[in-house]
Design a protein around this nucleic acid. Structure first.
Lengths: 165, 165
DNA sequence: TATTGTTATACTCTATAACTATA
DNA sequence: TATAGTTATAGAGTATAACAATA
């Protein structure tokens, strides 16, 4: 949360864990709000993921973008933005950064010269594979925490973002 | 979430909904990652909440801080930071903003003159009640989406942030 | 020496608006 | 007129480090 996010937490002191030291703090109605717990869980998940991959300077949002590029070679900037729910003006600098790092190729469309088709380079694919490994390790921890309820849990999460969209 | 969030979305054009227009986009392993869905759900929830309360310039993080202040009058800045999992240097400007808006009172501790005890003013309590109303409306939507699985769902979210902390 | 809170600073993510070039 | 992408700019949220006051 994507928010707002934070700097590289990979080598940071020790970022306070959500709810750490909050034992003696009263939460009131908050404790019964799905949105509140959703925020804490996402925050924790983000930080944990960043501990794995932050070293590479790639955070969850970037990772998702790379994955979309991998699975949809030739996608345009606008399509990518819609896929990851970000404005095109947010996607442009992201793409520029990827380009600067040699992770993607830009191929101008022949049929519509306004468009640019994007795809991962070998370096991009390689980095993605590496990130995927870390992401799997990370998500295995989440899997363990969620236990046998994973399918149900994802179904509910999906209902939330489909329902609120 | 993380991290970084966005500007007041209350009166914005129409913020792209997560996964909107992503129908034809392939997600690959992402589709099976809890962390990915968690991020989308939190993003959607955040935006929906901001649609309700963004007008007041209060977003989920602020709301949570106000609630903690309400339920724990006299709490210190550091304690508040630990409760909402944010560094003290993040909390200071937050508190200053609350103060500027007349939402809180600062009472220097007698026993330890480094500390400052914080509590909501009448205006702060009033705003909180108002926000609480909006939050309830918002969370009722989430409740509906999640259906009878709410307790289980919150339990899993809590396991995630407790387990990753 | 250690802790509380402030300040200075910097970085990431995000968006709106205005623009260029195409269509 | 409408759309794809860029640029300029701004704001929110976050953190690290250095600091002053106090313990």
């Amino acid at each position: 949360m994507r928010g707002g996010q934070q700097k590289s937490t990979a080598d940071a002191h020790d970022v306070p864990a959500p709810s750490a030291g909050a034992q003696d703090v009263q939460l009131g109605p908050l404790a019964n709000f799905i949105g509140f717990h959703l925020r804490l869980a996402q925050d924790a998940s983000f930080r944990a993921f960043a501990r794995h991959t932050g070293v590479k300077g790639i955070q969850p949002g970037r990772f998702a973008a790379l994955m979309v590029l991998h699975k949809n070679p030739g996608i345009t900037l606008g399509e990518l933005g819609r896929a990851i729910a970000r404005d095109k003006s947010t996607v442009t600098p992201l793409i520029q950064d990827f380009k600067r790092r040699g992770l993607i190729e830009r191929r101008p469309s022949k049929s519509d010269r306004r468009r640019v088709h994007l795809s991962l380079t070998d370096a991009g694919e390689s980095l993605l594979r590496d990130l995927l490994h870390h992401a799997k390790v990370h998500d295995r921890v989440l899997d363990t925490l969620v236990g046998g309820k994973k399918a149900e849990f994802i179904r509910l999460l999906r209902k939330i973002y489909d329902g609120l969209g």
